[in-house]
């Protein structure tokens, strides 16, 4: 499956781009997280990583579709 990942904050520095194409066999949010950690070891140093799918925080067992808007949400620090 080929997904497009939107990156923000430190995840953009790590992945290198605002939108990054990402191919993997898995389809779950949890699999995306472990694939990211495997390919970009620096991701493991983050305090947390959430995945947003279509503008909502997604649970680990959510199944991804190639057409979903998928975003990497490192620890937020607004305000």
């Amino acid at each position: 499956m080929k997904y497009t990942l939107k990156t923000f904050g430190i995840t953009r520095d790590i992945l290198g781009g605002r939108e990054v194409d990402f191919e993997m066999d898995g389809m779950k949010v949890s699999e995306l997280k472990s694939e990211l950690a495997a390919r970009f070891p620096e991701m493991k140093s983050l305090n947390s990583l959430l995945i947003a799918v279509n503008n909502q925080y997604a649970a680990d067992d959510l199944i991804l579709a190639e057409t979903d808007e998928i975003a990497l949400i490192p620890p937020v620090s607004g305000g």
């Binding site: 923000f8 904050g9 430190i10 947003a52 975003a71 949400i73 490192p74 937020v76 620090s77 607004g78 305000g79």
Partner: peptide
Amino acid sequence: VKAKAPIWK
């Protein structure tokens, strides 16, 4: 807002 909104500095 500080804890949940996807905003970064």
